[in-house]
Design a binder for these strands. Structure first.
Length: 181
DNA sequence: AGATTGATCCAT
DNA sequence: TGGATCAATCTG
């Protein structure tokens, strides 16, 4: 089976295309204790500064700077003082957009929720700005699976009610798993 | 439903 | 420099 580390060209595309393509890919984390891999089940797209749900809509600050950076970088932030969220930066430099990894499935079962994913994979802000294309510490692989678009459900994004009409965009994408969950 | 928890941002 | 805010999760 082919196992390809996703290259910059994967991330340097339209954010909704990247988001759809990420479903069924594998998040890989290398730790001193060994490595862990999870199939990506759910993501959310944040498409640019005009998207009022996207953190970059608040402007270019220290926190959002990475969103304006190279595709294939991570954007990791702390939320509610307790949990971390992992995003992958997309599109071209100076177009601030990203995809949030919301759920994965691995040998331990479904890891459902962005804070749980980061806890399970030991991801915190020390991995902010990490280059996902290097194949070390943290990256995403294509394992050659083809996920039919009919297997991906589209829903409103979670926790962005403040974003007005942008809150209703169907940009949360979730794989319809065998268990139906 | 309410509590938790702390980095960030801007004005009250 | 204080306080509101927050791409969440756990417990009741």
């Amino acid at each position: 089976m082919t196992r390809q580390v996703l290259p910059v060209s994967f991330y340097a595309r339209d954010t909704l295309v990247v988001a759809h393509s990420l479903v069924g890919k594998y998040l890989i984390r290398e730790l001193p204790t060994g490595s862990r891999a999870g199939r990506i089940i759910e993501v959310e797209a944040y498409v640019g500064a005009h998207d009022l749900a996207c953190h970059a809509s608040k402007g270019r600050t220290k926190r959002t700077e990475v969103l304006f950076g190279r595709p294939g970088l991570t954007y990791v932030f702390l939320i509610y003082g307790m949990y971390h969220c992992l995003n992958v930066v997309t599109e071209r430099v100076d177009h601030p957009a990203a995809v949030l990894i919301r759920a994965v499935e691995d040998e331990s079962g479904l890891v459902d929720g962005p804070g749980r994913v980061c806890r399970a994979y030991a991801i915190d802000t020390s991995l902010n700005y990490h280059d996902l294309t290097t194949g070390r510490l943290l990256w995403i692989e294509d394992h050659g699976e083809r996920v039919p678009k009919s297997q991906i459900g589209a829903f409103a994004r979670i926790g962005v009610d403040y974003a007005g009409e942008w809150a209703t965009k169907p940009w949360r994408l979730r794989l319809k798993t065998a268990t139906g969950k």
